[in-house]
Design a protein around this nucleic acid. Structure first.
Lengths: 244, 244
DNA sequence: GTATGACCAGAAATGCATTTTGGGTCATGT
DNA sequence: ACATGACCCAAAATGCATTTCTGGTCATAC
């Protein structure tokens, strides 16, 4: 799916499966040891392939890592879409925020990306904050708030960009505060998520409740747009080392 | 005021003033260079006194720093009390939150303390997260939320400890997100503060608005309690090196 | 055509001798 | 008394030679 550099035909299933296995291995290792401490040889060994095989799939360690990040982003986005479609409150900020955060908490790599965790991201983060995965997210969210305000799923009496910023700040605080809060006083995570969602609903939802269906559609569309954006960006540089 | 180890009489004005000047110098230096990079000699030079003089006031560099932190905390608390007394919305979470955050944003040292900024706090933070200034704050806030709920300035339909945690998380996110948010998209600070306060009001204030006067009184009392707590704790270990 | 792993070179880590730094003290001066 | 700054010494920083590591390549094997 996400790895399509195989010329003009359909993705080679064998190759694609192996690429996936390699990314699985990389994910396991990097989540635990961080980008710096996991070597390409480690990944190869963990995946049960040779080091050379890895360079048959990606030009460099960096590109492997970015492919991994892309895959995980795709997963999260996909899951988000499914959740929104399946769940009745999918179109409300209530459901949206709660699910958006949970999916990040459950995905160590996305968690690290969202918090710029230097321990996990290591040199990659230090070198280049250039990946669109690092920055375009806020654009996407800005647009989402704007459109959600247009269909009155979010109240329009406050500036959309400020709302976006505040939402980001809450998300960031949610993901990072454990570093400074007395550990024995942290309430259960799901209680926090649920309460936070309720507060957000009160603060941002209009009286009537707005057009949920429209909200749902907007978020799905935007998520899809984000996916093609990421995919396209990746496609332009995730070329194979050989056979152009 | 805060430095009262001078035996039984009133604080020695000359000595106390000089201590203040030294702390001023220390603040200036540490805000800029961080705890590790500012030496005791630097502080002495900046304050225009000899190194030995500093050890006439405090037993160690650590204690000087903690005295500084205490002084700044006292200032902030004092200002908070004054603001609450002077301002009509002093007793509401609206005003409370807004002012509480502004006072931290305006005080580099308190900002560093609230965010555990290793660049500023340096070795002191690394060695001991033992100072009550580091931990007791959350206790204080927990109690505040509890009492505010009791007089219905904060709605009682959600768990107080979770609310406290969420408030802390928002504050922390507010103070730290700039590290990961695209710099050119950060809205003006006061717009964010104001909007955030409005959202909080909507999310946490009851229909009627609750008893503002009672809210005001509670916060003032608690702030005062916090002050004597800090003062007392400091008093038991901020003894002079000689003349006990 | 595809996979492998020994191999390469630059970068990073290690070990160690040497120098500098910086809390903290105290003999001396006022 | 009180203030000073030269002085002390452990700890940290520096410089440097040597070793290890590791991203990336490619001759060889299948």
């Amino acid at each position: 799916m996400w790895s399509r550099w195989k010329g003009d035909g359909l993705p080679d299933d064998n190759s694609s499966q192996r690429a996936d296995r390699i990314l699985d291995a990389a994910a396991r290792l990097i989540e635990h040891y961080g980008y710096d401490k996991t070597t390409v040889s480690d990944i190869a060994a963990e995946a049960g392939v040779s080091k050379g095989a890895i360079y048959l799939h990606w030009k460099s360690k960096d590109e492997l890592f970015e492919a991994l990040l892309l895959r995980e982003s795709m997963h999260v986005l996909e899951e988000l879409i499914q959740h929104i479609e399946a769940h009745p409150d999918g179109g409300t900020i209530f459901g949206l925020f709660q699910y958006g955060i949970i999916s990040i908490v459950n995905n160590p790599l996305m968690h690290a990306l969202a918090t710029r965790d230097a321990r996990v991201l290591g040199d990659w983060a230090r070198r280049g904050a250039n990946s669109p995965m690092m920055n375009e997210g806020s654009m996407f969210r800005k647009e989402m708030v704007r459109q959600l305000q247009a269909v009155n799923v979010i109240r329009s009496d406050l500036d959309g960009d400020v709302i976006t910023y505040i939402l980001a700040l809450i998300r960031y605080g949610f993901l990072t505060i454990h570093e400074v809060y007395p550990a024995d006083q942290i309430p259960p995570l799901d209680a926090v998520g649920k309460t936070l969602a309720i507060l957000l609903e009160r603060a941002l939802a209009p009286e009537g409740g707005g057009d949920r269906e429209a909200g749902r559609q907007i978020v799905i569309n935007l998520a899809q747009q984000m996916r093609v954006f990421l995919q396209h960006w990746m496609g332009t540089k995730d070329k194979p080392p050989t056979q152009g």
